[in-house]
């Protein structure tokens, strides 16, 4: 994906120069290995800072919410689906955007790579298929496919679904992927086992809300956990309150989540809270044949009523 960088800069510079957009939102090179920082360029000269590699896992749609200017935005598959969701939910207007589509081959999982190695990582270099990781006394070449973020490994929409420019030819979509093995294994548990599973999963949570804030879907002016009149949920580290936060957050993403993985990636203590949203995503697919963010012209299942909607749960 490194080859995209020139095209990204060239396109961004052109759009800024001819005043089609006032800013381009993309990434700049991070200050630590395997991290990049969301960044904007407002002049054609500033585009030289924009980069692209396998560390651009932050969902940039998050940076569009309620913006008023004309924006060029770099969008991989999941970003583009969240842009569609933003358009549907009136958080940005289609006319404001020039979407610079990036066919994606997946983002790498920093946590996984760290766990595979003993020492500290000083530098990470990548080419099309391999990731070379360097430390003080080691150098290891990893196959990129083995170190993808889990949501990228099971992604079936790597190409942007909506775009005005494209930085490269579309990539082949993954076929025959089993997207929901993890959800099925939870579904197969007894109630007690499920309860325990989520207790363990959330035991490290520090309620920093990075998962919520990294998510482009979470844009409420005041989140229910911050609301104090009435107060819906306690603010302490009490396990019931922590769980309430996580479950309700997930529910609010029902029919909207694109499994971009931003929440899990953002978590400082490595909680895979995607197991909540993925259950809802799976249900939406099975009950309504719905995948979020695929088209700006179709209303989502949870804000429409159809006589054929499944209602088996109502007695």
């Amino acid at each position: 994906m490194l080859s995209y960088i020139d095209k990204i800069r060239e396109t961004s510079a052109r759009l800024l120069k001819d005043c089609s957009v006032e800013m381009v939102i993309g990434f700049r090179k991070g200050t630590v290995p395997m991290m990049n920082e969301p960044h904007f360029a407002k002049t054609a000269e500033a585009v030289d800072k924009l980069v692209w590699d396998s560390n651009c896992g932050i969902n940039l749609a998050n940076y569009l919410t309620n913006r008023q200017e004309k924006i060029g935005i770099i969008a991989k598959g999941c970003d583009s689906r969240n842009i569609v969701t933003h358009i549907i939910e009136n958080k940005i207007k289609r006319e404001q955007l020039i979407i610079i589509g990036v066919p994606c081959s997946g983002m790498i999982d920093k946590r996984k790579i760290n766990a595979m190695l003993d020492g500290e990582i000083n530098d990470v270099v990548e080419d099309e298929n391999n990731i070379t990781v360097k430390g003080n006394d080691f150098e290891k070449i990893l196959n990129k496919r083995d170190v993808l973020q889990q949501n990228c490994a099971v992604c079936i929409h790597r190409n942007p679904v909506i775009y005005d420019e494209l930085v490269a030819d579309l990539v082949e979509e993954q076929e025959g992927v089993d997207r929901y093995a993890d959800v099925r294994s939870i579904e197969a548990m007894s109630s007690e086992e499920k309860w325990k599973y989520f207790d363990d999963l959330l035991s490290n949570c520090i309620r920093c809300y990075a998962c919520r804030n990294a998510c482009p879907l979470c844009y409420c002016p005041t989140c229910f956990v911050d609301e104090s009149r009435p107060q819906w949920v306690g603010k302490s580290q009490d396990p019931t309150d922590v769980r309430t936060f996580h479950f309700l957050r997930a529910y609010h993403c029902a029919g909207r989540c694109t499994d971009c993985g931003a929440c899990e990636r953002a978590c400082p203590v490595g909680i895979n809270m995607r197991v909540f949203t993925k259950k809802l995503e799976k249900d939406c697919l099975e009950l309504f044949g719905w995948e979020a963010g695929m088209s700006a012209d179709v209303r989502p299942p949870l804000d429409t009523y159809k006589p054929g909607d499944p209602d088996d749960f109502i007695k």
């Binding site: 579904e187 109630s191 086992e193 499920k194 599973y197 989520f198 909540f276 749960f313 109502i314 007695k315």
Partner: peptide, 29 residues
């Protein structure tokens, strides 16, 4: 149920204001 609440603890019913008998049945059940 997915979060570990036992099946059956949460139930949904559609009862019209004209269906008093059904309402009683549902509450009992």
């Amino acid at each position: 149920e997915h979060m570990g609440i036992e099946p059956g603890r949460l139930q949904f019913s559609w009862v019209s204001s004209a269906e008093s008998t059904k309402f009683v049945e549902v509450v009992k059940e």
